[in-house]
Nucleic acid binder design. Structure first.
Lengths: 216, 216
DNA sequence: TAGATTGTTAATCGATTAACAATC
DNA sequence: TAGATTGTTAATCGATTAACAATC
């Protein structure tokens, strides 16, 4: 069966995050030589119900074989395509701190067709220096040096006070998406998708739950 | 009014994550000299509805003043306490890669009473060396060197294939919580809270949404 | 007091699960 | 064929919003 069109279907970020998680699992399964997997087995790995796995997948098409399960490699290709990861993504990196460096040599970057094509920093001493074979540009020239027709995503690794203005400027020149790490909220410009990854949020959920578990 | 007891109340991670987010906002507001904030203003900063802010907070008590709003500092203290962040947390760090280093000098660590008290690695050449004033211990000795009465949380910064066994061993010795960064799912041991922070999941949501926005 | 904003309930909306017919 | 597992619908469960009385 062809992919379903997904007009007016309720596809939320919860689904998309799970699909991303299925993808990393499928990747491991494929590498381990697993050819076929049932929704039940995949669900067990993910720690969710089998029905939810099937529900997520059928929002985008019928990828399974009744009585058998899902072929790992084709399913991986389908999910890759659904997430838009079947093409190259051009990235700009803003800020050159430790976070950026992790990014540059992270697995996510290497294997997913993410290509850093420009790096910016505001520190005068760093501008002109090289990082990852790219000359660091002046953050003041963001607007001149970023072409939204070429750049797809921005990784914003600047300090909390600088995040909002950077996001605003990126939005203004037409960059569609950004991921930032600072521990703060930001107002999201129209037509932009912004995500935040903040370790303090995760730590907060851990400390909350552990505090309750061990009363006293 | 006293805090509500929260037996049999439906407090989920969605609420806890928002509370963590409120906390970082309150922290900034306090530093900026804001004394009082309404649920509406806080909600606007967070990008959610004012009713939801009030709902989240009233699950734990009545912290506001009708007609006025919430005093920033007291509310910050309340949320800090709700999340269990009003005490010191002893952490072990497992793995000494780039990710760990970020952690060690991250803001989340400094300001939140998180104290790294032990560091482990499996690489023979690193064992005995120092990192952040702590001697790196042999990962093989995890069981002998970690006292679950002293250690509250583990930061697991090891490679994907090693994550599961490390988590399992931590669970077995009675560590209550762990945060790991590898791009994979793990089976969570009984009585343990485990969180994963994986940049590839965030990137997946970004690429998905941007792919849809710009059809073609 | 009048205006503002909380705390809270009921209504709505959305997500997950249960269950099973379809079918490999 | 019999057994297994998908795809899908209806039922349930949970989260958010709307709305307003309480009250500062």
């Amino acid at each position: 069966m062809k992919d379903n069109d997904n007009r007016s279907k309720p596809i939320t970020d919860l689904t998309i995050r799970r699909l991303s998680s299925y993808l990393r699992t499928l990747d491991i399964l494929e590498k381990t030589g697993v050819k076929i997997i049932s929704s039940k087995k995949l669900a067990d790995i993910e720690g969710i119900s089998d029905g939810l796995v099937r529900k997520d997948l059928t929002l985008f098409g019928s990828f399974g074989i009744r009585g058998t399960g899902y072929h790992v490699s084709p399913l991986k290709r389908h999910v890759t395509r659904i997430l838009g990861l079947d093409r190259r993504w051009n990235i700009v990196l803003i800020g050159t701190g430790e976070t950026s460096k992790i990014f540059l040599d992270s697995e996510a970057f290497q294997k997913k067709n993410f290509q850093v094509i420009k790096i910016f920093d505001k520190t005068p001493e760093l501008i002109g220096k090289k990082l990852d074979n790219l000359v660091i540009s002046d953050m003041n020239n963001l607007e001149n040096e970023i072409d939204p027709k070429i750049v797809d995503l921005a990784i914003v690794a600047v300090s909390p006070p600088d995040v909002q203005s950077v996001i605003d400027r990126l939005g203004k020149i037409g960059i569609k998406g950004a991921l930032y790490f600072a521990s703060r909220s930001v107002a999201v410009p129209k037509n932009m998708v912004v995500r935040n990854q903040d370790v303090s949020i995760e730590l907060g959920t851990l400390t909350y739950h552990i505090s309750r578990k061990v009363p006293g």
